[in-house]
Design a protein around this nucleic acid. Structure first.
Length: 277
DNA sequence: TACCAGGTAAAAA
DNA sequence: TTTTTACATGGT
């Protein structure tokens, strides 16, 4: 299946950069110019279509997933207008023209992925998480494997997860999340603050994890993961070269990007990775 | 070989 | 209340 993005600024190359930056992700697999992801019992293939090419419409189950992982839910024009008034951002949006941050379409997967990434490098996190997907995943496509279902994980033991390379603490966090009675799908109807309150009641889910959940799953425009080490460094690189920014300093920096903190964070991170501007 | 990497909770001070 | 420590792995 091939998909041509909707109208408006869009760069397939930049918007999918994240899926190539930290090693291959079994649940969001990149292979020869296309992104593969399992939806239900099918494998979705997302690639850039030639201009004017005939594109088969997606069904109601796959379309929202495709739009999420391709970043199509973000509108760039208002952000670009805002960025024109910031001497640093104006260079970033020019260098990254058409970049729309991909969203993580499934809430349970989003949180397990974040727990996997706590404290360790993203390459280490992907390696460990890939073993979870390989061992307990759902439908196996040609390139991608469906992320393990919440109830599949709920039935595992701490030792099962420890054997994959998770710390015992993280194994407990993942089991507690899977077994909790929280309706993760209902969080999207709540304001940012209530999502924070509900998720942070779970062990192992702190401010950073919820900030990224709001940013990358719920696409909340004002989410600003000030505790994120890579974001702190990216902010410093572009706005305070040579300095190290504390979490508090980084949080304070977020105010100047209101109400585009989420897009700004993604442009700074991707800009730092791709040596833009 | 060390040390660091897109945190969090619990212990210690 | 604030600071320090343990955590397991992958990459350099």
């Amino acid at each position: 299946m091939t998909l041509l993005p909707v109208a408006g600024p869009y760069s397939f190359e930049l918007s999918t950069e994240r899926f190539r930056a930290f090693g291959n992700d079994l649940a969001n697999a990149w292979h020869e110019g296309a992104l593969y992801r399992v939806v239900g019992a099918r494998e979705l293939r997302l690639a850039e279509a030639p201009r004017g090419a005939e594109v088969a419409p997606l069904d109601a189950e796959t379309r929202p997933v495709a739009e999420a992982v391709l970043g199509l839910r973000f509108e760039l024009e208002p952000f670009y207008a805002f960025a024109a008034g910031d001497g640093i951002l104006v260079g970033l949006v020019e260098a990254l023209d058409g970049f729309r941050p991909p969203l993580s379409p499934e809430p349970f997967e989003t949180l397990v992925t974040s727990i996997s990434a706590q404290q360790v490098s993203l390459r280490a996190a992907i390696a460990i998480r890939n073993r979870l997907v390989e061992r307990y995943g759902g439908f196996r496509g040609e390139h991608a494997v469906g992320f393990p279902a919440r109830d599949t994980i709920a039935r595992l033991s701490e030792d099962d997860l420890f054997a994959l390379g998770y710390s015992r603490r993280k194994a407990q966090y993942i089991l507690a999340l899977a077994r909790s009675d929280l309706d993760l799908g209902a969080l999207g109807a709540l304001p940012d603050e209530e999502v924070h309150t509900l998720l942070r009641a779970l062990p192992g889910i702190g401010e950073w994890t919820v900030d990224w959940f709001l940013a990358r799953h719920l696409a909340r425009p004002r989410s600003w993961p000030a505790g994120d080490l890579a974001l702190r460094r990216a902010v410093a690189r572009f706005y305070r070269p040579g300095e190290d920014l504390s979490i508090e300093e980084t949080r304070a920096m977020g105010d100047r990007f209101d109400p585009f903190q989420n897009l700004t964070a993604h442009y700074l991170l991707t800009g730092a990775r791709t040596a833009a501007a």
